[in-house]
Design a protein around this nucleic acid. Structure first.
Lengths: 115, 115
DNA sequence: CTGCATCCGGAGCGATACTG
DNA sequence: CAGTATCGCTCCGGATGCAG
């Protein structure tokens, strides 16, 4: 049988998922959401420095579609939309958070942008 | 200076590192290198499906500059160049490998590219 | 055989302004 | 407050050709 879950294989569905996760904002959004039960759009913007409204929404939509993020629209005026993690998202966030921690910890040892 | 290693802060050196790691090829190259002590260019190309020569070399050079990958040039004809992980790279590869494993494991639960 | 330089089309992303 | 739309630019990344 085809070991189609193997990320090393080009035509594998895992690749799609991997690229979504590899997105630089995903690596920040998921761990950020893991800190609190639910967060609003603005809250996330403030928590994650440098992200634009566009990219935040776009990434959240992708993550929602993938089943990692939950979007709760209270349908009120003014708008009240919260985001949270699905169980799957919480599972993934654990690994991503440890990745973030690794970067923070070893940041000094890395020749950052010695371009 | 503000030693803000916090990845959530935009102007943080961690961000540079994070983006390097977030590169879709890094997530495959490092774990691939972790499988064997040393690998040649061709070996990596075969192991990682879909990567172009250019991106492989480019990513390897970035990783080398960051101190994650070791480049061993035997300076022979025909050329014999091997790549390996530095201790730092090996450390990181552990986290990345677990990420790859997560993707492989939960790939079916993710709504892949329901775009 | 390895890996670097160059060219180039297109996706990605930021900034801004606007809607409900 | 949340999200969309449009524009414009950058740079990613593939293909090709060259050098050692």
């Amino acid at each position: 049988m085809k070991t189609s879950a193997d990320v090393y294989v080009a035509a594998c569905p895992s690749r799609v998922a991997l690229e979504l996760i590899a997105s630089k904002w995903t690596l920040l959004i998921l761990p950020a959401l893991a800190e609190k039960k639910r967060m609003r759009n603005n809250e996330l913007m403030r928590r994650i420095g440098g992200v634009s409204q566009k990219m935040l929404t776009q990434t959240l939509r992708d993550l929602e579609r993938a089943g990692l993020v939950l979007r709760i629209d209270h349908k009120t005026v003014p708008p009240w939309v919260e985001y949270g993690l699905t169980p799957l998202g919480r599972s993934l966030s654990r690994t991503l958070t440890s990745l973030d921690r690794w970067v923070e910890k070893h940041q000094a040892e890395l020749n950052g942008g010695a371009r």
